[in-house]
């Protein structure tokens, strides 16, 4: 982190949504090539008699249009056009940040990511730069139902050339977003619903959290709980519960899904010998499976038992609360998984 001093400072708790806005503000102020594009990112904000109170459906970009009138672009509801335009702009000198309102909508605009942005650098013999960031809301838990609740980061993480990051708290959100915007690769930045309105201590000023580095968020010795985004909080809670029974759980926050910090995963596995990975996404072809495969492939000698995956169910996200709860991973399911190992 740059600009850090050794002076103790007052904690400043702000929600993840605000931390994201801070990162956008810093990025746009420090580089006029950074533009923000998306549906309703300004809302009625450009109306002479209007306000800039909306700032997207989650109010993350509230007020930015007034501060950066030339860098904030409200778009039509044209995801294919938005993403494709952003890729074209990125490769020709701008540094666009696109807001894709919910990650579920990626179905309407996959090509610019899948066949364009992700492949340019390689396909063009290393002669292209694609400084593109796609911010997108992921996750269930708000009864937003089947088309507004999916965690599809496994899709983007599975595409070579694309990076995918997912913060678990406000401070990381700010630092990861700044790193994503300044990165010359296309980065998908996930904003899990479960943390958007949770507050944590966020440093002032400009700092980056490096892409590709996981972080131990709780030290332990009996079992490793690997989480990402909103599941890190669940894992921490589970660790708290387990501690009361004398089980010491270490919690690793992946922060970056592609690239994946294999060293960090193998290091914690080597330490505890048992690993559970907690993922909000569906179980097939996903991050949880990747982590499990890594443990078996490169960490086999460390394993004192099976690797367990605690994930969403392999079905569309149901609307009604009882089924949505049954669908999602939870602290209780993590605790249960740990007990099955110890």
């Amino acid at each position: 982190m740059s600009g850090q001093s050794n002076q103790p400072r007052e904690p400043r708790e702000i929600p993840t949504a605000f931390a994201i806005a801070e990162a956008l503000r810093i990025a746009m102020a420090s580089d006029p090539n950074v533009i923000l594009m998306g549906e309703d990112v300004a809302g009625g904000g450009r109306r002479p008699e209007g306000t800039d109170e909306m700032g997207g459906i989650m109010s993350v970009t509230r007020g930015l249009i007034s501060e950066f009138p030339n860098q904030v672009l409200d778009t039509p509801i044209s995801e294919m056009g938005i993403l494709g335009t952003a890729v074209g702009a990125a490769v020709t000198g701008l540094r666009p940040v696109v807001e894709l309102m919910f990650m579920d909508f990626i179905g309407t605009c996959l090509d610019p990511l899948l066949n364009q942005a992700s492949k340019f650098r390689y396909m063009f013999g290393g002669k292209a730069r694609i400084p593109l960031t796609v911010r997108t809301v992921t996750g269930a838990g708000m009864q937003a139902a089947a088309q507004h609740s999916q965690s599809l980061y496994w899709m983007t993480a599975g595409i070579p050339g694309l990076k995918t990051v997912i913060p678990s708290n406000a401070a990381d959100a700010k630092g990861l977003l700044l790193a994503a915007i300044r990165c010359d690769d296309p980065v998908v930045f996930c904003e899990p619903k479960g943390i958007l309105f949770l507050s944590t201590d966020v440093p002032e000023g400009d700092y980056e959290v490096p892409i590709g580095k996981a972080k131990i968020v709780r030290v332990g010795s009996d079992v490793s709980l690997v989480g990402m985004g909103a599941t890190v909080g669940m894992a921490l809670q589970a660790a708290e519960e387990l501690a009361r029974d004398g089980i010491s759980a270490e919690v690793l926050d992946l922060r970056s899904l592609a690239p994946l910090d294999e060293d960090a995963i193998l290091t914690t596995l080597a330490k505890t010998g048992r690993l559970i990975v907690v993922d909000e996404a569906t179980p097939r072809c996903g991050i949880a499976s990747d982590v499990a495969a890594l443990c078996v492939d490169k960490g086999f000698d460390f394993l004192n038992g099976p690797v367990r995956r605690v994930t969403a169910a392999m079905c569309p996200v149901p609307f009604t609360r009882v089924l949505e709860e049954a669908y999602m991973p939870s602290t209780a399911r993590i605790v249960e998984a740990v007990r099955s190992l110890i």
Binding site: I77, T108, Q143, A145, Q147, F319
Partner: peptide, 25 residues
């Protein structure tokens, strides 16, 4: 929809209703 769909996914194919939709367009 037996509670699985919710407001944005109410559908009744027999009535010729192909469904509300959460994806614009």
């Amino acid at each position: 929809c037996r509670g699985r769909g919710g407001s944005m996914h109410i559908a009744d194919i027999e009535k010729g209703m192909l469904g509300a939709n959460g994806i614009v367009g």
